[in-house]
Simulated scan of single mutants.
Amino acid sequence: MSDQNNCFYCTKDEKLTDIMIKICELEASILYLFKEQTYRGRCVIAYKEHKSEIFHLTDEERNLFMKDVARVAAAIDKGFSPNKINYGAYADKMTHLHYHIVPKYENGPSWGGTFEMMPQEKVLLSAEEYQQLINQIKENL
């Protein structure tokens, strides 16, 4: 079975929907709200096609993808006013090109260090609270 057949960004099954909510499609990517919200406004942006490395993209594809990444980071900055945004591109086991866009807040969790991928004490929200975050991000895209 190929990586693409095992990839929840490609199959869009419950493995994906259990941890993320689709916000919208952008030029080269799909934007998701990460359900675990220790870092308020945390999103994941995944390239639309199954690619495992940024260097597998053409110059044009890479530029469009990075434009999407910057656009999302700017929307999160405008919507949530974090002190810093961290970017994570860890894909040892999930070989689909994606970035975690993680707002960090001074005196908040992991300030001054690497954000936790899946914190032990998870911050999960109600459906209404997730929708409020999604609306806030969309308004600023």
Rank of each mutant, 00 (worst) to 15 (best):
T114P: 11
Q131A: 13
R62Q: 13
P82F: 03
K93N: 15
K51G: 05
I101V: 08
A89T: 10
D77W: 00
E53A: 14
Q37A: 06
F80M: 10
K84T: 02
L124G: 14
D13M: 08
A74R: 14
Y90D: 12
H50Q: 07
D13C: 06
I54H: 07
G112K: 06
V72T: 07
A91K: 13
N107E: 11
I30E: 10
K15D: 04
N135E: 13
L31S: 06
Q37T: 02
E116G: 11
E60M: 07
I54E: 11
E25C: 11
E106R: 12
Y99P: 05
E139K: 13
D77Q: 11
Y32C: 08
I23E: 04
V102D: 06
M94A: 15
Y105Q: 07
R42N: 10
Y87L: 08
M118C: 14
T114Y: 03
M20W: 01
E116K: 14
N83L: 01
A28H: 05
S52M: 08
E53S: 15
A70P: 01
D92N: 15
L141Y: 03
M117W: 00
F115K: 09
N63E: 11
L64R: 14
C24V: 02
F55M: 14
H96W: 00
I19T: 14
E60N: 13
N5M: 08
F8T: 07
I45Q: 05
K78W: 00
Q132H: 07
T17R: 10
L133H: 07
C43Q: 05
H96A: 10
L16F: 00
L33P: 07
G41K: 08
E53G: 12
F8Q: 09
N86V: 02
N140H: 07
K93M: 13
G112F: 00
E106G: 12
N140V: 03
L26E: 07
L141F: 03
Y130F: 01
E121I: 03
M1T: 11
E116L: 09
E61S: 06
I54C: 09
I101W: 01
K104L: 04
S2P: 10
R71K: 15
K138G: 11
H56C: 12
V69R: 09
G79W: 00
V44Y: 01
E49Q: 12
G79M: 04
I76N: 08
Y130T: 04
Q136P: 03
F115S: 13
E14G: 09
Y130I: 02
E53N: 14
A73L: 03
G113K: 14
